[in-house]
């Protein structure tokens, strides 16, 4: 097949110029700060708190999306109801809706004087300008991932698997937990990983609703922006590299787990 040199040349050149060299500059800049300064910054209370918030809430949001993603995928694959196709299409909205739009919409809903926030305020529940608000935004942007990875696996599952289980005397619950869900698990994990990866670096939809209170509702990407605004390039780079390292380690771990699961389930 001809054209390998041309195609390969274009993609590698573009990849280097747009992605790899800039990322190398990031690592270089961070390394230039020296190990002591890096450690001091990375373990400063405000950075640690922001990392905890970003990673903790991203994992929590991905977990919520696993539960509801499974339910939504099940409902879309198994039941026929009015508007099913529109709902199916709508699941992808977070892919298409700019994050800033989602951000101000969520703020308008959950701010203390917002449409829902005002209803919750008398109950003493605060969502907007708290970590709960961040969670709402992260659930929103990660919503399609689990649905879209699980849906095709559920749809292609042989009907006879359930019939065989039922004829062997299994209850519906036992059939679902023992026969249907195990083969879906690797796809669930893939969806979880994608949703987490997206949420952990999310910025646009979060900053409008987070309140951005240091040590309470300040996310790690915002810290980078703040450092940049103070022209502290090295500090911004250090936080960026720490974020990337942590998320790559987590994603790698999740991918290894997923691969092991697939092997175990005989998918090889």
């Amino acid at each position: 097949m001809p054209g390998f040199g041309l195609g390969f040349g274009i993609i590698v050149t573009a990849l280097s110029l747009v992605v790899l060299i800039p990322l190398a500059a990031l690592v270089l800049k961070a390394a230039g700060a020296g190990p002591e300064e890096i450690w001091a910054l990375a373990t400063s209370p405000r950075v640690l708190s922001a990392l905890r918030i970003s990673f903790g809430l991203a994992l929590l949001a991905a977990a919520v999306n696993v539960v509801f993603g499974l339910i939504i995928a099940w409902v879309l694959v198994r039941y026929d109801f009015l508007g099913r196709r529109i709902i199916d299409a709508a699941v992808d909205l977070p892919f298409a809706l700019p994050t800033a739009v989602a951000g101000i919409a969520l703020a308008a809903l959950y701010a203390p004087n917002g449409w829902i926030g005002a209803l919750l305020a008398p109950l003493g529940v605060k969502v907007g300008y708290t970590p709960a608000g961040i969670l709402m935004a992260l659930i929103f942007i990660g919503l399609p991932f689990v649905v879209r990875t699980v849906q095709p696996v559920l749809a292609e599952m042989e009907a006879e698997l359930e019939e065989a289980a039922a004829l062997l005397g299994a209850s519906r619950w036992k059939t679902i937990t023992g026969v249907i869900l195990p083969p879906v698990l690797p796809a669930v994990l893939t969806g979880f990983t994608l949703a987490f990866a997206r949420a952990v670096g999310e910025y646009g939809s979060v900053i409008f609703i987070a309140g951005n209170i240091p040590m309470v509702s300040e996310i790690a990407p915002l810290l980078i922006v703040i450092r940049l605004e103070q022209f502290d390039y090295a500090g911004a780079a250090v936080i960026g590299v720490v974020m990337l390292l942590l998320s790559f380690i987590l994603i790698l771990g999740l991918n290894l787990l997923q691969a092991a699961l697939r092997r175990r389930l005989g998918h090889v």
């Binding site: 999310e202 980078i224 990337l244």
Partner: peptide, 12 residues
């Protein structure tokens, strides 16, 4: 990669 980092690398 966080979008903020995508911007950051070009500033650097």
């Amino acid at each position: 990669v966080s979008p903020v980092i995508a911007g950051l690398v070009y500033v650097l």
